[in-house]
Design a protein around this nucleic acid. Sequence first.
DNA 1: CCCAGAATGTACTAATTGGTTAATTTGTGC
DNA 2: GCACAAATTAACCAATTAGTACATTCTGGG
Lengths: 222, 222
Amino acid sequence: MDIWRRRKAHRRRVVVRPQDPEGTRRDILKIATEEFAENGFNGARVDRIAARTHTSKRMLYYYFGDKEGLFIAVLEQAYARIRKIEAELDLTGLDPKAALRTMIGFTFDFQSANEPFIRLVIIENIHRGEHLARSTTIQQLNWPVIESLRDICDRGRRIGVFRDGIDPIDLHMTISALCFFNVANRATFSRLFKRDMTSAEALARRRDIVIETILRYVTKRR
Amino acid sequence: MDIWRRRKAHRRRVVVRPQDPEGTRRDILKIATEEFAENGFNGARVDRIAARTHTSKRMLYYYFGDKEGLFIAVLEQAYARIRKIEAELDLTGLDPKAALRTMIGFTFDFQSANEPFIRLVIIENIHRGEHLARSTTIQQLNWPVIESLRDICDRGRRIGVFRDGIDPIDLHMTISALCFFNVANRATFSRLFKRDMTSAEALARRRDIVIETILRYVTKRR
DNA sequence: CCCAGAATGTACTAATTGGTTAATTTGTGC
DNA sequence: GCACAAATTAACCAATTAGTACATTCTGGG
């Protein structure tokens, strides 16, 4: 205990400035994200977060008000991060089919690789989105995806490879649903049907099915 | 308070036998299902369940051991119930396409109408299926669905309307994913994309898309 | 150089929570 | 009608939990 505290103090003094609001905030947020994603809002323990932080419980309340404020901050950061990564996806120069394939594949890979984020979304849904509702920043972050999909659909329709009447939000819902399920319902589904859902091969196989499913849905039949 | 307790006692004496193990179990299980589905495992309160029951907290521990035992019992009952309803679905006499359409539609409708069940599944996934693992009864309940799908696929392939290599478990996963999402992720998705997902029209629209998506995936192209 | 206000550490608390102890009532086989 | 187990009640408890009071330290601007 004593040794640990000394090491902590040491680390802080070397890596971080003695008083470093931004650093402290970031530190708390990182640990809190892990704790909330792992245990849900009610299962998460403020004391446990504080203990793993380089600072004290007091700071947590100082910066985020209460447990709920901290959870909202965690959600906001998580959503902001995924949006930022999504924005890096460049689909210019790809024909509609290739663009859609790329986007679905990207979504699948991203969600597969970011279970904690998926878990936060699930948890927030269990709470009926009440924290998301109280957040001012998250609301309009997600429209770029829709616009991107709308563009792909329009282009596809114009050159005659996609059929009419594909709504980009519906399409996004389908993509999300198929990618999400593989991570979100892993535990029960793989247990119930004795099917591996985490190995590289299983993921690759499923990825192909998801892409194929959606492409067949939008493709115009001749 | 006094009046309420007298009414409670009165009700029990009239409707239920003074000592009625089965009735007490059922009573507890019903309330517990609501409480767990609403608040998750960690958010659920044993005292709250007990208070809404026609019996006392002690009975809850008497019959189910502890909070976890009660949750497992809730899960088991929920899964058993859905399986029983699923078994009532009669697909004989339907051609493969119609059978698949019927099954998907049924799954969609059932899940849409049983949010508490969906929430229990989500909650169990957040807990990585640890309770399901400790249940002895749930494990092999879910195979009939797979067998039913396998039969549909086989028949469809034989008469040349479905293509080869459709795995029934993959297919079930796709069906589940698309139906599940609409209930499970309602809160965040509808909030983020300002889209109604609960009205009769919205459900009907989405139901059609889900069915169409899956049918296009299995159908053989000419 | 000093001091106001921001940042942080320590120690505490009031309320809640899952679970239990021990005694009492009720039904049943003999 | 009685003995004995099953069913039920009421009061209780130890541990945990989110949140706080208060003192202290740091830092930048005048």
